[in-house]
Design a protein around this nucleic acid. Structure first.
Length: 124
RNA sequence: UCAGUUAUGCAGACAAUCGCAUCGCAAGAUGAGGAAAGUCCGAGCAUCCAGAGAACAUGGUGCAGGCUAACGGCCUGUGGGGGCGACCCUAAGGAAAGUGCAACAGAAAUAAACCGCCAAAACUUUGGUAAGGAUGGAAAGGUGGUGUAAGAGACCACCGGAAAACUAGAGAUAGUUUUUGCUCUGUAAACCCCACCUGAUGCAAGGCUGAAGGGCAAAUGUGCGUUCUCUCACGCCCUUUUAGACCGCUUGAUUUUGCAGGCAACUGCAAAACUAGAUAGAUGAUUGUCAAAUACAGAACUCGGCUUACAGCAUAACUGACUUG
RNA sequence: AGAGAUGUAGCUCAGCCGGUUAGAGCACCACCCUGAUAAGGUGGGGGUCGGUGGUUCGAGUCCACUCAUCUCUA
């Protein structure tokens, strides 16, 4: 078992994803919030020199194809623009209407959202 | 040319850059659908310690023959209905085994007399009658004649029904002939009868792994809806909690091509191929070319169907009408 | 992913085994009562029974398909 685990660690996938249900609910309960028209960003400080981000899209947004597409686009934006700072964990919650936006508008909104977050954190 | 019927196919492709999942030492290779959907059926697989038979219960299916691992599916036919036609639709056993139900209307609803018609007495009664009226979804086979006081399958012709025989067919059925004047409405997607099938739970099944606690134990007990019969088995079982790693997890009633059989569904043989396996759950972004790339939509144990959603097209065969030759 | 339940008036529910007019309470509107309001009384409006098709003479009820909402199973 230990050998296998060490092998997995050597691969080092650049995995910045939140995965466990507990982490999600923790951030929803205790984290701070920033929001724009169609998105809300929940965030909380962490101890590690790393960041993790999760995406939350409710079933009301649409069927499986719609939700998957939105999630993929959000991932792409976050990856390309390198928005999140280390020492934080995030959950990005998509509200109604988010799935109707095209890629350009999405990236605009996400950038704005993170700018709000930077301002807030610099003040402290 | 217009209108239509049936069947089949595609479900973006190619190139460049960045990025994701699996496999691989690496280079690299591969990477959602025709419905992946609804979960409506049928199986595999797993557990309920095992298996066989009979009866009952529960639920289902319902024209015939075939195909299939199996089916409530498919194919070829039969009966019925629709369309000028190509063709399409069809839960289509039994109402003469029994029970229930049929509101309102109407004189009467499974049984006869309200109006009418006719006769007699007589000025309102008695008897005959099921042609006509009116009600209804349904009113005593239909049309025409003979007949009669008026009428009536009372009798006759044709149509329809029922029964029997013969012929054709594997069968559902069809055809022909004969007999019978033929009372006996509808509903079984009401109970039911008949024939056939049918254990339950679903991969969150289940296995494996860490910790704690509890219970029972050799029989007169327990063992897949109930009862019975026979064979057989029996020492471990249960609960809570942590973790969610690993196995199950993808080579299979598989796919493609060719040949052969069959009207067809489908089957047999040969060769080649391996084609997602995630676990917050992998396919996106930008640019170029094509007339355009846009519809419905995302695998979650796996297959065979059914049903529903669907942009833009392409191809083939056939039908009807019109025009020209 | 799997298993199940429910859709009837603005809201909360009845409506049994098909039968003709789909009811009840709250809410709404008008009138009565009061100097006025509430309470009370009388009367009234509002439903294609989630949708589509079928069975039947007739469907909220039976059957098939479909849509929406909710619950349970790590």
């Amino acid at each position: 078992m230990e050998e296998k685990n060490s092998l997995l660690n050597t691969k080092v996938r650049s995995d910045h994803r939140l995965k466990k249900d507990k982490q999600f609910s923790y951030i929803f309960r205790k984290g701070k919030r920033k929001s724009t028209e169609n998105f809300t960003l929940y965030y909380i400080e962490s101890k590690f020199n790393n960041y993790k981000i999760g995406f939350s899209i409710s079933k009301k947004q649409g069927k499986a194809t719609v939700r998957n597409k939105l999630k993929r686009r959000l991932k792409e934006i976050v990856r390309k623009e390198k928005l999140p700072l280390n020492f934080y964990n995030y959950v990005l919650y998509a509200r109604e209407g988010a799935s109707k936006l095209d890629f350009k508008n999405l990236s605009m909104q996400i950038k704005k959202l993170f700018e709000k977050f930077y301002k807030e954190e610099n003040k402290i």
